[in-house]
Amino acid sequence: MTTTLTHTWYLSGRRLHAIARQPFVIVGNIFQPAIWLFLFGELFKRVAEIPGFGGGSYLDYLIPGVIAMNAMNANMWAGMGTLEEIDRGTLNRFLVSPASRVALMNANVVEQAVTTTLQSIIILLLGLLAGAELPGGLAGAAAMVAAAVLVGIVFGSLSNAAGMVLRQREAIIGIYIVFMLPLTFLSSAFMPTGLMPGWLRHIATWNPLDWAVRAGRSALSTNPEWGDVSVRLGGLLALAIVCVAVSVATFRSYQKSV
């Protein structure tokens, strides 16, 4: 246990050091969500006037959606980093050392959590700049960031697992293409699910991305429903733990094919 923790610390340090050396990568990756935020914010401004939407500002509505989407989007590429470590032989070097397996994956999780946190905060600030009100304040922002981090861990771990098992860049790109847009639009990121056809709404209920969007949106609203927020965050946390466990288990399958 202590070994796992100290090794997580050492190995995370390596990842964070790499990020600190290239901070512009994080900022560069924000470019796309920023475009979504401003483009969609303007383009669909009047969506908020549709009966059943519930009124309010569309920008305020959109921000949790863009943050959650960015968290999923960015972390779905985590497997590429894993593949690079495999190709370079870095992963093998760690696997034949006493490095803890769990710590190896934990380091990925810590890296994903830190980048997702920074990116989510930047998107929140951009939203404020664009005129969003975010009445939930700091507590709301914290819950939003937590939801984004958990979504990032879920999809980052699955991407790492896919990289370890399939060992092909194409597979990761394929998974991205198949899941990214459907999961985004099968959530309340851009449109309340109340306005969706019944079967779509049903699917959205099971979409972890939607859990994050709803938890963040409620937390950032004037009257957060904290009970509801906790349930959704709890669900995301449970799912994240399962996904990390799955990704740790892939070491076994990887070592079979080495």
Partner: peptide
């Protein structure tokens, strides 16, 4: 272990 592929970060 010094593997064929470098392994250094």
């Amino acid at each position: 272990v010094v593997a064929q592929r470098s392994g250094a970060d």
